[in-house]
Computed example of a mutant assay.
Amino acid sequence: MNHFNLMQFFEGYVRNYRRLNLSVNHNRSMFTKREIDYFANLGEMLGFEVFIEDRKMDRVKGRSRPMDLAWWKWDKRISEEEYVSLDLHLERESVWGKDVETIEKLFSKTEEGCVPTHVIGIQYIESEERIDYLNNLVVEKNSQQKSSALIVYRYWDVETEMEKVSAFWFNPRGKQEERHAFCKEDELGYWFMGFEEEVNLPVTPSLLKY
């Protein structure tokens, strides 16, 4: 199955974030809903069968587990009874303490027809220091699953005093690319994102070059 350029998906996520109409008055549940809906709409426009809160078997736990979002490929030319593939499994998590659980969901041992071609994980983490540990876990698990994986971390950046959004793309050989953005409020109190190289960062002593 062909792989999408998931970094292009991240670029769309960043550039379209203001269109989600998320304001400072919205709670975490609304952020989760709007972001999942964004990727659900994207999947439908690309021609996939899209399901929110779908399920797949987790062989380690011996039961099915929910997927926040799933894109399934249907092609009657290939099969009249089964989906051709699970093309995307996406998880969106706001609770810091569930970062490992989120990765385990994306890379769980499952049935052959339910191994996702692509996975996307978007999650809040406690700090930037957590990234290396989580990325190593992704590399370990994806060496077996062999998906194209986009893992997005959102966390408070101490140096800039803004919310930073760091994305990492992995293939079965390991980490291939990374890109960073910031999430800010506009003058009306709505959230938008801009890439690190495009945002006017605050000048603080820790950012100055001597």
Rank of each mutant, 00 (worst) to 15 (best):
V152L: 03
L6G: 02
E128C: 13
A70G: 13
L20Y: 10
R179F: 02
V24W: 05
E80R: 11
R19D: 12
L188Q: 13
K209Y: 07
M193I: 06
A70L: 14
Y155Q: 02
L88E: 12
I78S: 02
N16A: 03
E161I: 08
V24F: 06
I125Q: 09
K61T: 12
M57R: 13
D186G: 06
K98F: 04
R92E: 15
F195R: 00
F39S: 09
E178V: 00
R77D: 04
V24S: 05
R130A: 06
T204M: 10
M1Q: 03
V165K: 04
K184M: 14
M57K: 10
S94N: 15
K56Y: 09
Y38A: 11
E82A: 15
W169Q: 03
D186P: 12
K56L: 06
M162V: 04
W71Y: 14
L150H: 01
G97H: 13
F195P: 06
K175M: 02
M30W: 06
P202G: 14
N171W: 01
F39N: 10
F192Y: 15
V95I: 09
L134M: 06
L106I: 01
L42N: 07
Q176F: 00
E53I: 01
T110K: 09
G43T: 05
R18K: 13
K105P: 08
T117G: 12
F170H: 02
A70V: 14
V138D: 00
G113K: 14
K146R: 10
E101G: 14
C183L: 14
N21C: 11
W156R: 15
W191A: 14
G43A: 10
E111V: 04
E101Q: 11
F168T: 05
V115A: 04
R92K: 15
H180Y: 01
K209G: 09
A40D: 02
R19T: 15
F195W: 05
E104V: 08
Y210G: 09
E129R: 14
H180C: 10
S148D: 05
D54A: 08
E104Q: 09
V138S: 04
R154W: 00
N135G: 01
K109H: 11
L150T: 03
L150E: 05
N27H: 04
G62E: 11
F31C: 10
N135M: 05
G113M: 13
L69S: 09
M1T: 00
R59C: 12
P202Y: 14
I125P: 05
P172I: 07
K73A: 13
E82S: 11
T32R: 13
I125S: 08
I78Y: 03
N171C: 01
R63H: 00
N200W: 06
G194H: 08
Y38C: 01
N5E: 10
K105E: 08
E126L: 10
E140W: 00
Y153P: 01
A70T: 15
P116D: 11
I103Y: 07
Q8F: 00
N142T: 05
K141C: 00
R65G: 10
E198P: 01
G189H: 13
Y13D: 07
E35A: 09
L137H: 01
G43C: 12
Y190D: 15
F192N: 10
N21I: 02
K164Q: 09
D87M: 07
E91L: 06
V95K: 12
K175A: 05
S29Q: 07
S79T: 04
E80W: 09
R130Y: 03
V203C: 04
M162N: 03
W191C: 06
K76W: 10
W156M: 13
R28W: 02
D37K: 06
L207G: 07
M67C: 14
G121A: 13
